[in-house]
Structures are given as C-alpha cells and as structure tokens.
Design a protein around this nucleic acid. Structure first.
Lengths: 196, 196
DNA sequence: GTCATTAATTAACCTTTGTTAATTCAGCCT
DNA sequence: AGGCTGAATTAACAAAGGTTAATTAATGAC
C-alpha cells in the first residue's frame, strides 16, 4: 500500500472516502522490478496502467544501428503505461525497464477507466491525471520548439536535478534529443563559462 | 451547426442520442474569425474550449528579439484551447490567430467538463478526445527525440501535406524546431537528391 | 502595368552537432 | 593491488544548423 501521508493527500485532494480509494486499489496488484529488469518489452501489448511507488523507469527505442534513444523517464508518484498499446492499440515500439529497484501498482487500464467513469467523484481525479499528463507532454514539445539543446539541459537540471542525478548522462542526452557526446560538450561549455 | 454527416458520425461513434449531443451544443456559441484575426492574445486568460469547424489557427510565442515561434497548428474538426489558461491556470504565453477565415464553436471549459462528467455516456467521448490530444502530443515529442529536422519535415509533409500547403514555410519551420533558412536548405537538399 | 510588401531562397560565415574512435575516469570484482 | 567494464570525456573531421544580409519570387494595392 501507499504510505499513510500519500493516502491522506489523495483523499483530501479529491474529496474521496477511504472505501472509494480502496475500490481503486482493489483493481491493482503490486509488482516489484529488480534493477535493469524489463517491464514492457518492445512488441509487448500490455494494456496496464502502472503507478510507480518507488523507483525509476526508462522507456527507450532501439534504432536499427543498435543505438538506444530514451523516450521518457517516469519515477515515483507518476503513472506509466505503454502508450502504443493504450493510445494506438499497437505493439509497443519501446522497451520500458527499471533503472533502479522499482515498486509499482498495476491495474488493467480498461477496468480502471470503467470504474473511474462509473463514479462521478472519480471523474475529477481522472481529469486531474489526464490533464497533468497532457500538460507535461505539451511542456516538453514546447521545450523543443522554444529552446536549444543547451537551454533544454539547463531547464532539466533546474527542474529535475534529482532525476538527472539518478540517471546516466547518456540516457539524459537522448531524452533531450542530442547525443551523449554533444551533452558532454555542453557541460564543458557551461562549466568553462561559469568558472569565468 | 455542424454538417449533417459530421453530426451522424458523432452520434454513431459515441452512441449518443441527438438530444444529448444537443445539450453539448447548447453550451457552445459560434464565432467567426477573419483571416489574421487574433483569437487569444498573449496574456489572455480565456478558459474556453473551441471546436474548429473550418479554418486554421496558429499558436505562436513571441521571442524577446521579435521572432515568432510556432507552437502548434489546429484546423478543422480539432479542438483548441489556451493550454496555459486551462492546464496551468496562468495567462497565455502564446498568441492564437486565425491564418484563414475561421469558424469555431466555443464553450466554457469548466461548464463543458461538468456536463460531460454528469452523464456517463459522455465520458467515453471525453476520454476519446483527451486520449487523442495526449497521443498527438506524445507523437510530437517522439518526433523530436527520434528524428532529425529533415526527417521531421518529411514526416510532416507525408502525413499533413494539406496543412503544410495552407501554411507559409516560415511557420512550418519553427513548428519543426528549426529556422526558415534551415528549412529552405532542407528542401533544396531533398529536391537535389530526388532529381538524381 | 509599377510599386510595395512579404515569403523564400541563396550566400557567407560562424557555431554547434553528429560520427567515429581514442582516451580517461570510476566503480567493482577477485 | 591489478584488471575489467562501462560511462564520460576528448579529439578530429564532416555535416548541419543559426545568423545576418542580400537577392529573387510571388502577391496584392494602386
């Protein structure tokens, strides 16, 4: 289960009764992923929604030349799903793997939506999560059209420095749309500029 | 009102009764935008959701140096809102303007959500639209991490050639995260490669 | 038609990135 | 300690993009 303070936070935030929150958790099963364990592999069709209690999961695409490109990172208190499976009804083009020992709560996406839609009190919670995901994706699109790679990196370490520290630079680089070599040069430029 | 075939399409797709669809339309008012008319200006706080019946709307950010950067394009049968106002509850950092004579149906976002949440039959329609928006944004993020500018351009003209044709290249360029000069060079490269 | 305006292209130059490969660094194992 | 492994950095070069400014097209006003 979730820590008590998290639970109370949810109950208060969405105005739910404990038993209502419980009905959601009844759909979910806990899963533990070892470090480096693959959660969804390329080609997988899992239509599950996962809530990350602890840990860090990376989704990446494997290019023909063998290079990996990080598509997204998800960590504690975030939701995760194969968006190919859920939004495009197609096998996942990406592999999702745990970068740390990770604990998730997993529920069937369709069943969960059915439950959330059945009770109007859940609707605002659902809206909240859909909206946050949408907002997050929009912010990321924005960062690509408005910022150059160096600015994207600066914004990332400013806003997610804890995550950056938990993740090798080479994965951060491709998340920003650049190569690890280029990220290394950016870091060098920045440090030489900072150290006048 | 919508054309009859569109209406029937919606009724069938979501299994709604005509009067149910009507209750949604009762929230909406039609607005006509002249070519180049500003719909939402930077700093605006309109919390409306618009359905574009006809036309093309561009959202752009004005940089300090006076350059405009296209953030998104929306056209007929798509939904549009100031996402700063709705998702971030802050004044819009972007200006939305009609690139063509445009007709929209506009409804207050909160009222619409309230109505959609009140009737479970609307929920799947709402999910559908939230999911499509999310999927679209995710595809765009993907195009930035997986493709280079040339590949992004090729994908865009392949999948949205009609829209590209309705929009000056300089707006397309910044939408792809590059400058108009660079897009021109890409086009030249492509045509020289195609013409053996 | 000419003029004016704006988009698109081209050129020149500089900066940045991609690519490949070599080198350094750090952690870990025995 | 020494040796292994993978990450990060550095180097060298080619390819691409950013910037600025000039040139050419295209469009619309008059």
């Amino acid at each position: 289960m979730l820590e008590e303070n998290k639970i109370n936070q949810y109950l208060q935030f969405f105005g739910l009764q404990p038993e209502e929150l419980l009905s959601i958790f009844n759909l979910a099963t806990e899963k533990v992923l070892a470090q480096d364990e693959v959660y969804i592999k390329e080609g997988g069709t899992s239509r599950k929604l996962a809530y990350i209690k602890k840990g860090l999961i990376r989704s990446f695409h494997l290019k023909e030349n063998g290079d990996e490109v990080t598509v997204l990172l998800r960590w504690e208190d975030q939701f995760l799903a194969s968006y190919d499976a859920i939004f495009f009804s197609q096998p996942s083009r990406f592999t999702y793997h745990a970068m740390e020992p990770t604990v998730i709560l997993e529920a069937d996406y369709a069943s969960l939506m059915e439950l959330l839609n059945a009770n109007p009190k859940f609707s605002s919670a659902k809206d909240f999560f859909m909206n946050s995901m949408l907002a997050e994706m929009m912010e990321r699109v924005e960062s690509f059209v408005l910022l150059n790679p160096e600015e994207r990196y600066l914004r990332l370490i400013k806003e997610k420095s804890d995550i950056v520290q938990r993740c090798p630079d080479k994965y951060i680089a491709t998340l920003l749309g650049i190569t690890p070599v280029s990220l290394s040069r950016i870091r060098k430029r920045l440090s030489s500029r900072a150290g006048h």
